[in-house]
């Protein structure tokens, strides 16, 4: 398969199933040929297509996992796709291309905004030694190998590989570098973890959309829910809005209701599986 055909194939991601394993093999062979011929621009072009393959594949897998309620693994795949986009953006515009990269970039952020994860673990490391992923040379101050991280050499991305480090701590953060490090509770005495997160917003969304490239949007709205629904809360308890450490009487009891965050979804092609309650059928007149 020639490069142009591969590009055509990747452009059809929203309309047909793509054999990514086959494409990956073809691209790997073509890149090796380009490197042999010292054709750096072609090797880089192939690297870009390899990244497009990975990003598309990870996003599609993530979507399917969300559909299957495998939420945490979907979250990790979304992060991997996000990282792939981050490295790719330096070399390729994701805004004007036929590979749905802009859609994937934007929709990943939307999914992340719906996930209930708030706290993450972040390692604190002293990096003592690192080597260049291109030439393997150990980094020496004032005697660098000359390769620049983030650049592409022989169709490979240049990164630092940390080979010696010291763990000095683990922090609990709200803004992690590694989004996969979600905080879970340990389940009893066993090795497993308990996933007690509330995925109801995601579950609701998945009833509305069918396909990974269906267009949807989300609006976050703060509304005041009637105090009548919180009659079991004492004024001295922590406020049921969960946005503060204040008591109910110090916080929302003074307001017209309890502040609550709502997700409002706008879906272009709602699934036929669900009929929304309180919906009105409007006959359009010609």
């Amino acid at each position: 398969m020639e490069i142009d055909k591969i590009k055509e194939e990747l452009s059809s991601v929203s309309t047909k199933e793509i054999n990514y394993s086959e494409l990956a093999e073809i691209l790997k062979r073509k890149k090796a040929e380009a490197v042999k011929l010292s054709d750096e621009p072609l090797a880089k072009e192939i690297w870009i297509l390899e990244q497009v393959c990975k990003i598309q594949q990870r996003y599609l897998e993530a979507f399917n996992k969300i559909k299957q309620r495998d939420f945490y693994n979907a979250w990790c795949l979304l992060e991997k796709a996000e990282i792939g986009l981050l490295f790719l953006k330096k070399h390729f515009s994701i805004n004007e291309n036929p590979y749905q990269l802009k859609f994937i970039n934007d929709v990943i952020r939307k999914y992340q905004s719906i996930y209930p994860y708030r706290l993450f673990f972040s390692t604190e490391l002293i990096e003592k030694e690192k080597e260049c992923s291109i030439c393997g040379k150990v980094y020496k101050l004032r005697d660098s190998c000359g390769h620049i991280t983030g650049e592409i050499y022989n169709g490979e991305l240049c990164l630092w590989k940390v080979t010696k480090s010291e763990l000095v701590g683990v922090a609990v953060v709200e803004n992690p570098v590694h989004k996969y490090a979600v905080a879970f509770l340990k389940s009893g005495e066993g090795e497993g973890v308990e996933d007690n997160y509330d995925y109801s917003s995601l579950e609701y969304l998945m009833k509305l959309i069918n396909q990974p490239f269906d267009t949807w949007d989300i609006d976050f709205v703060v509304k005041y829910v009637s105090h009548n629904l919180f009659k079991t809360y004492s004024p001295d308890e922590t406020c049921p809005c969960n946005q503060t450490d204040k008591t109910y009487s110090e916080c929302c009891l003074k307001e017209k209701g309890v502040k609550s965050l709502f997700h409002e979804f706008v879906v272009e092609k709602p699934s036929k599986e669900i009929i929304l309650p309180n919906s009105i059928a409007i006959k359009l007149s010609k």
């Binding site: 005697d143 620049i148 953060v173």
Partner: peptide, 30 residues
């Protein structure tokens, strides 16, 4: 490396540490 590559020739920039003592701390916060 970035600053060195952009500095004019008459402006010297360097790191205040011997090469063997150079270590980086990854804290990952806001």
């Amino acid at each position: 490396e970035f600053l060195k590559s952009k500095m004019p020739e008459d402006t010297i920039i360097d790191i205040c540490v011997d090469s063997d003592n150079f270590k980086e701390l990854a804290l990952h916060s806001d």
